Amino acid sequence: MAFWQLTRLRVVYPVVLIFLLFVDGSLMAGMGGIFTAFPWYILPTLTLGWLFYGVQFEVEPDVPLWVYVILIGVLFDMYYTGIFGTYTLAFAVAVAVMKQCHKVLDDRLLSGLSVFLIGLVSFLVVTYVAGFIIGIANVSLTTFFMFEVLPTVILNTVIVALCYYPILSLFQFLR
Results as ranks from 00 to 15, higher is better:
T81F: 06
Y79E: 06
T127S: 07
S140I: 15
V12C: 01
F3K: 01
T47C: 05
E148M: 12
V125S: 12
A37S: 11
L141Y: 13
S114Q: 14
I167D: 00
F145A: 12
N138M: 09
G112A: 04
F132K: 12
F171R: 00
S140Q: 15
Y41P: 08
P14I: 02
F38S: 04
V153Y: 01
I83A: 15
W40L: 11
F147R: 09
R8D: 02
G54E: 00
A96M: 14
G30C: 07
Y68F: 14
I134L: 15
T36D: 10
L110C: 11
R10L: 09
I83W: 12
T127Y: 02
L51V: 05
V23P: 05
G85C: 12
T152H: 08
Y53V: 00
A29Q: 14
P61R: 06
I159D: 04
A37F: 11
F147K: 07
T86Y: 02
R10I: 11
I83P: 09
V12L: 03
L9G: 00
L65H: 07
N138S: 10
A130E: 14
V23M: 06
L141W: 11
M31E: 13
V149D: 10
G32Y: 11
T88C: 09
F91T: 00
D106S: 08
A137T: 12
Y53M: 01
Y165C: 14
F3E: 01
A137E: 11
V160M: 09
I118G: 13
Y87S: 13
V149I: 11
T143A: 10
L48M: 11
L150K: 10
V63C: 04
A96Y: 13
V126S: 11
Y87F: 12
S114L: 13
L170W: 04
C101Y: 02
P166L: 10
V69D: 03
T81L: 07
M1W: 10
G25Q: 06
I134Y: 10
L155C: 01
S114M: 14
S169R: 13
E60Y: 05
L43Q: 14
S122P: 13
V15W: 02
H102S: 08
L65T: 08
L46G: 05
P151V: 06
Y128F: 14
V63F: 04
V12A: 01
I167N: 01
F116H: 04
T47I: 03
P166K: 14
I167A: 01
P151S: 06
D107I: 04
M1S: 13
I154K: 07
K103C: 04
V126Q: 15
P64Q: 03
L150H: 14
P44V: 12
